[in-house]
Write a protein that binds this DNA or RNA. Structure first.
Lengths: 193, 193, 193, 193
DNA sequence: CATGAATGAGAATTCATTCAT
DNA sequence: CATGAATGAATTCTCATTCAT
């Protein structure tokens, strides 16, 4: 009522986020999404060509928002600060937007080749950014001469694993700041005694 | 052809592994699985109550096989050996059985609550085993006093991330032994300079 | 642009002729017709109660225009001249207005009972006029004592068959005058040796 | 129960003939056809890939049956006998199988390009056969030197026009033999006095 | 036990029509 | 009058599951 156009489109995307997160692509019914968005079924098709298209656009939207987050963290001047902030903000973000976490952290089984490629590219970009940061850190002498690509996967894998534990598997309360701090230390110093 | 009973059941499970891995749960059709198994559609229902049931049993079967693997590794007396062997064997196993990797490493979107719980329990058991080993290692003084649960997630997350890179995203050839060695070192010593 | 009222109505009828001819009733979309007419979808409903109504009115309009044509021909004083002119003008008319031909010559599958009756009545009126002319010709001694109704169907069927051949089935160029002349002769003298 | 396979397929084709004839392609619902055939909706799709496919196969089937009819008539040694028999049998056939008439005599609006071509080819073949017969008749001196193609259209157009009158437009009883006799005479001798 | 023909519940999508602006 | 965003009824088609042979 206040927002001119894009209003309905936003409602639909919000509803889709919720429903896709809760049920996954195949179990999410367009009728449910429309109902959750408070619009008619037909209206969904005014804004999105198909269910697949809706899902793709949602994914893109979510990844981009998330990437923007990462880009800010990447500004951090030293590796330790970078890692701690990366963990902290990732976990907070996921905690605050659990449905988004559920979508971003899930492997979406072959919906179609194009979507697959889209997802792959988005994830790779995230890894590339991280690897680039790590390479620079290595040149600054903040990282041992390990493969930046391996290190990026170590970090990304840890974030995903923690995300899974925290959001999929349990309802436990937790403190992102504390966990982030410990996680960053483990990455930097290893676990060896 | 005359191999006892359970023969057809095995054929179906093998076919299901292949088809579910290639297409995911919802895109896999019972008709395809039956055809790949060389049996009639109706026969699938002689051995499995439903498509969901087939998937659940397959998952259980695959996790158990994988867990057995882990249990042997767990025998390793020292942490460094444990980690290297864990990475090496995990990656080799996934390399040799890419379809199984595809199933075990994927988040299967909510098929139903029971399946969800099953998957969760299986993954948790794996983490528990790992955490238990790490706790013992800490007591042996091989690990700094970090949370075994965090460390288990660090390791499991790294394996999953590497698995994704290697099997989902690229077709690159790679040497599990070399990667395992580097990975184990990174876990033990961290990446900090 | 300023042409009185009924301007928009004419635009819509013209667009409808084109679209219905090209795609048939069920494949023609109101949105397409509105776009072709350069008006909004809602505007179509200002002038026509429904899609069916639009089609009905179009049909009526087209038949009436065609009937007017026939009425002039009917003035012809002798049967030979009548036939030749009937064929010539029908074919020329259809050649000049192929979309109209496509609509008038088609059997439109049951859209609804009322439309059915409308079409029937229009076609019957055409046949009646022709039969009436033929009856008069018979009385003038220009026609053998055959049933005027049969003769009217012979002529109308021939026109329709030629129309189909010429407009539906091929893209061949042809000379309406030459064909009309031959057709009229065949009707008058028969084909028997 | 007696007839092995093809039983259900025949039931479906028979039901489809009835429903398509009564309602046309777009108004015929698969659910209606299935119900009329006494089978489930899904069963229709066991035998036909799609609604379009069902319609195409039906059309082909009907045209072929009709063509077979024509081929027998074509055996007639003299033109007069040929024409009379052609009219008589066509009208009787249509009278006995009104639904088939309704399908064969209708212009099916652009369902798709392939179906269009199929219909066109079938109708052209019929005309070709007739034209070939007429050419031979001309060589035997039974027909004046008129274009066989024009003559074929004259005859086919007359049959179609009579068919429309008799089956679409009225419920009148009529005697195919009497009409056929008069029609054949009109074709041979013309209507000119 | 094995089979696959038959089934129908269920879902995505289309599009004529309405109505607030 | 004119418009086009919103709507949902209606329809095709898919596929897990059953069951007679």
């Amino acid at each position: 009522m206040t927002r001119a156009t894009g209003d309905k489109r936003q409602q639909i995307l919000a509803a889709a986020t919720e429903i896709f997160a809760a049920r996954g692509f195949y179990q999410a019914k367009i009728a449910d999404i429309a109902a959750a968005a408070g619009v008619g079924k037909g209206t969904v098709y005014e804004y999105f060509r198909s269910k697949k298209d809706l899902f793709q656009q949602l994914l893109l939207h979510l990844f981009n928002a998330h990437l923007d987050h990462l880009l800010k963290v990447v500004q951090e001047p030293d590796l330790a600060g970078f890692l701690e902030r990366l963990f902290r903000e990732s976990l907070s973000y996921f905690q605050a937007h659990q449905e988004i976490a559920r979508i971003l952290l899930s492997d979406h089984p072959p919906i179609d080749a194009a979507t697959q490629r889209l997802l792959f590219a988005a994830k790779q970009e995230k890894l590339q950014r991280m690897a680039a940061y790590l390479k620079a850190a290595a040149e600054r002498g903040e990282m041992r001469p390990v493969s930046p690509w391996m290190a990026a996967n170590l970090i990304a894998g840890f974030i995903a694993a923690l995300g899974h534990q925290l959001f999929f598997d349990s309802d436990m309360d937790f403190d992102p700041a504390a966990i982030a701090s410990e996680a960053a230390a483990m990455i930097l110093q290893g676990i060896g005694g």
